[in-house]
């Protein structure tokens, strides 16, 4: 987009803001759904994954943006994958060292950040053509947009599926079970993640008419 301007100009702030709504990576750009849905049974792993993606994305966006003039176009995919893979290895080792149980729950999905299309997509579409600072903001913004959806989905699935929030037994404490409420087991199962995202898209597009697709 623009270069040579103050650090937090409107343009730069828009880089942060747009991915949260108008160009959300999951509901509008359709990127990064692969790893998004399987971890959203509980809030905790989702938040951890969201933070990991923010870290990987911000750093690899900056690195690629710094290298953008010296990467030969023919091998750029390999270069990008190597940068991302290095970052993901770092994140994975850190998680295994400091949050072992969460890392076990996430299982292969930390590794799958590498092939998370949202990272490749932003590197290709933005970092290859922009300076490091806008690239950094773009990385943070898109990863945050991804994380927000992840957390919304996880919130509803954990609340309705297990009756807990962040492992805190909310419904039990409120005494809802005693009046005959039962957890909806279907919410824990994978297909409901897709339907939840479908409903989020529905709500978002109903409020934001310009996102509606043509027939």
């Amino acid at each position: 987009m623009k270069e040579r301007e103050p650090l937090f100009s409107t343009k730069n702030l828009n880089l942060l803001r747009d991915p949260l709504n108008d160009s959300n990576p999951i509901t509008v750009q359709v990127l990064g759904i692969c790893s998004a849905l399987a971890v959203t049974v509980k809030l905790k792993p989702s938040v951890v994954l969201a933070i990991s993606v923010v870290a990987v994305m911000a750093v690899s966006n900056v690195v690629i943006s710094l290298l953008r003039k010296s990467i030969p176009p023919r091998i750029r995919i390999i270069v990008q994958l190597t940068v991302i893979a290095t970052m993901v290895i770092l994140v994975d080792e850190i998680l295994q060292a400091f949050a072992y149980d969460v890392s076990k729950q996430l299982s292969v999905f930390v590794g799958l950040i590498i092939t998370n299309c949202i990272i490749m997509g932003r590197l290709e579409a933005f970092a290859m053509a922009n300076k490091p600072w806008p690239a950094f903001l773009d990385g943070i913004g898109n990863a945050a947009g991804y994380g927000v959806i992840l957390i919304i989905v996880a919130f509803f699935r954990e609340l309705l599926g297990s009756g807990t929030i962040w492992d805190y037994p909310l419904f039990e404490k409120l005494g809802i079970f005693s009046i005959g409420y039962v957890n909806n087991g279907l919410m824990i199962l994978p297909p409901m993640a897709l339907i939840t995202v479908g409903i989020i898209i529905w709500v978002q597009r109903a409020r934001n008419k310009k996102l509606i697709e043509d027939k």
């Binding site: 509901t27 359709v30 898209i201 597009r205 043509d214």
Partner: peptide
């Protein structure tokens, strides 16, 4: 589904997600 009357905000991506979810339930 192109011939069906899907609510406008669900058109395209949204309905695809929901169909995939239903197929997932079937596969379960």
């Amino acid at each position: 589904i192109r011939y069906s009357n899907v609510p406008a905000p669900l058109r395209g991506l949204g309905i695809t997600f929901i169909i995939t979810g239903l197929m997932g339930i079937a596969f379960m």
